[in-house]
Design a protein around this nucleic acid. Structure first.
Lengths: 186, 186
DNA sequence: ATTATGTGATTAATATACTTATCAAGCAGC
DNA sequence: GCTGCTTGATAAGTATATTAATCACATAAT
């Protein structure tokens, strides 16, 4: 009954069509397809090929990207007292995240603290995102791809998280950093 | 030869698969489909149903929305010494941005300094984005919609930038904040 | 009442997406 | 040379998306 693997494409298409005040037949005519398939798709009795879906969207018109662009976001907490930041790791590297559940959010903002010698590990990190940070206190060695640099207070970094990377506190004192990931990665 | 109606889905999928270092067979296994269809899709000899496409993306994982969201990013500077941060405003409120041109970037990371009494203005700000910040030093009054709160060192905030907002240094000393916007807004 | 036109849903036939099994090329180790 | 394992591509068969035609139910006009 559901060939879309849990994605209610039928309702989505129908809502879109209704909002444009088009009948199945009118849309079919514009898109150059049969009206029957629209009926089937809207009932989720058929999972359209992206070619078919694109034809249909061209009838509005609307791009595939727009069609799939997420909607409906809940009402979130705005202010966070320092102790409310949620600790993600809690070892020699402390990741204190602004917000509890970042799914659907654009940014993962964190207040990080590295104890002297703390290290994210010899095996480099890599994930689908972009990230940046500003060093507040202490000295942090940042490795990105084949580039290494030691940053101090006021210095910053920004890179594509897909390039393997690593962080290490090479100073004698604790290192404090504020970082941002987009989209949230862990 | 092109069942996707002018959308080069094959190249897109292949690039994604390559960037994750997965073979067609590995991805097929994760997604629970046959490897053959991946070969066909990547050559644009078959236009996958959205059900199939969703299965494949779940193997990364990645949402349909993300997949269709446009991308293509250049090779940027990674490290920024403190004086390299670019000053955006330079009045009583100093916005020092990590990176020169943020177009096409996911995050706009800034190191901000508010002089005592500094204020983003009585007419509230509003833009299409999400933003968050961590207060490092001083006291900052943050107004979001009808909510007001004074935040101190270690406190943080996060909200949808479309809700009107305003920042004001209500303390006697300078206030230091690290903020992130996604997507970059000004 | 009947004819007409509109709606979405359904059936049978056809086109195509998808699977299973296989192939050919590349690369490691023996 | 082999053997074994990986890679991406291909062929034939099966499942399903899609079409053309029709059905059933409305509303409106003759």
């Amino acid at each position: 009954m559901d060939g879309n693997n849990g994605f209610d494409l039928g309702a989505r298409l129908k809502a879109l069509r209704d909002s444009h005040n088009l009948s199945q037949r009118e849309l079919a005519k514009r898109a150059g397809v049969s009206n029957a398939i629209i009926s089937m798709i809207e009932q989720n009795r058929s999972s359209p090929s992206v070619g078919m879906l694109k034809k249909l969207l061209d009838g509005f018109p609307m791009s595939l990207a727009e069609f799939f662009a997420d909607d409906l976001k809940p009402r979130p907490q705005i202010f966070f007292a320092a102790p409310e930041l949620v600790e993600l790791a809690g070892g020699p590297v402390s990741y204190r995240q602004v917000g509890r559940d970042m799914t659907g959010k654009a940014i993962q903002l964190m207040h990080e603290h590295y104890q002297p010698g703390a290290d994210t590990g010899a095996q480099m990190l890599s994930h689908e995102a972009e990230e940046g940070g500003v060093i507040i206190r202490g000295r942090l060695e940042v490795t990105v791809g084949d580039q290494i640099r030691v940053l101090g207070p006021g210095d910053a970094y920004y890179f594509d998280s897909r390039t393997p990377h690593r962080f290490r506190n090479v100073g004698a004192e604790e290192c404090e950093v504020v970082t941002a990931n987009s989209p949230p990665s862990f």
